[in-house]
Design a protein around this nucleic acid. Sequence first.
DNA 1: GTCTTAGATTAGATATATTCTAAACAGCAT
DNA 2: ATGCTGTTTAGAATATATCTAATCTAAGAC
Lengths: 141, 141
Amino acid sequence: MDADIIRESLESSGLRCTPQRYAVMAFLMERNSHPTAAEIFDAVNRVDPRCSRATTYNNLRDLVQAGLVREVAVEGRGARFEAIQTRHHHFICDQCGAVEDLDWYDVPKPAGAALGKRVFRDCELIFRGLCQQCAKRKPKS
Amino acid sequence: MDADIIRESLESSGLRCTPQRYAVMAFLMERNSHPTAAEIFDAVNRVDPRCSRATTYNNLRDLVQAGLVREVAVEGRGARFEAIQTRHHHFICDQCGAVEDLDWYDVPKPAGAALGKRVFRDCELIFRGLCQQCAKRKPKS
DNA sequence: GTCTTAGATTAGATATATTCTAAACAGCAT
DNA sequence: ATGCTGTTTAGAATATATCTAATCTAAGAC
Ligand SMILES: [Mn+2]
Ligand SMILES: [Mn+2]
Ligand SMILES: [Zn+2]
Ligand SMILES: [Zn+2]
C-alpha cells in the first residue's frame, strides 16, 4: 500500500495531505502516462472526493514546486505532468503526440566551453518518430 | 541577400510567398531565439505589412507542416518556434525559461529493444540549469 | 473541548492562448 | 472579364490557466 508513502512524501515537503491533493498525487503515481491538467481533473473527479478545477491547478503547481511532480517539455497546448520517479527519457510520437517513457541511459554532457557560464543541473533526451500504434497504421510512406 | 532564399524555400514547399508569410519566415530566420507566437505577431507588425493574429498562426502552422519551421518542446504555456537550421540541442533556464541553442553533437540512440516497434526519426537533447544571466544573479544557494 | 489561525478549497470571473468562421482579397488561368 | 484557388482578415468562439474573495479544514494553543 503506497497510501502512506504518498502521505509522507507530501508532508515531508511541507504540504498537508488533503483528499484532493492526495488524489492528484496518487493518480500521477499510478500512471506511467503524461496526462494534461484537464485529464487529471477528469480522472480525480471520476472517483468520490470532488476537486475543483482551481484546486487541481493549485495542487499541480504546489507539487511541482515541492519537487514531487514535473511538468514535461512537449510541444502542444496543454501542460503535461508526471510524478517524479526513476530517471528516464521520452519518446514523442509525430503523429498522435503520445509521450512515452524510455529507459534511462547516460548521455554525454556538452563540453564545458559550450556551456559557458551556465550552471548545469540535468539533461533529458527526447526521441521523435512514430509510436507503435501509429507505425502499425502507416506501413510505408 | 537571403530574400530570394526565403522566397524559393517557400515556393519549393508549395507555399505562395505572400508578404505576411515572408515576414514570419524572415523574422524566424534572422533570430536565433525561440519566440512565442505572440512575439512573432508583435515583431512582424512592428514593420510595415500588417499581419493579423489568425494569419500569424495560420502561417506558423503552414511553415511547420512544410518542414521549414519547428515548434520547440518546452514546458510552459505559449508555443515557441524556430526556423529549421543546423542541428542543435537546447538549454532551458530553470529560472527565467530562456531557451538557448547548444552546438550539436551526436547522442547514442537507445537500444533497438528499448525502441520496440516504434519508428525512430530524430532525437534532441534538453539541458536544464541556470542561464548565464540567472547564474550571475544567484551567486550561491 | 473551544479558540485561533494558517493553509486549502471552491465557484465563478478573468486572463491568456489558439482556432474557427465567413467574407473579402490576390494572383493566376482561361 | 470570369472563375479558381489559396490567403488574409476581424471578430467570435474555444481551450487553457489563473485570480478573487468567501468559505472550509485541521493542527496547535489554551
Ligand atoms: Mn515520463
Ligand atoms: Mn533552437
Ligand atoms: Zn502515435
Ligand atoms: Zn535564466
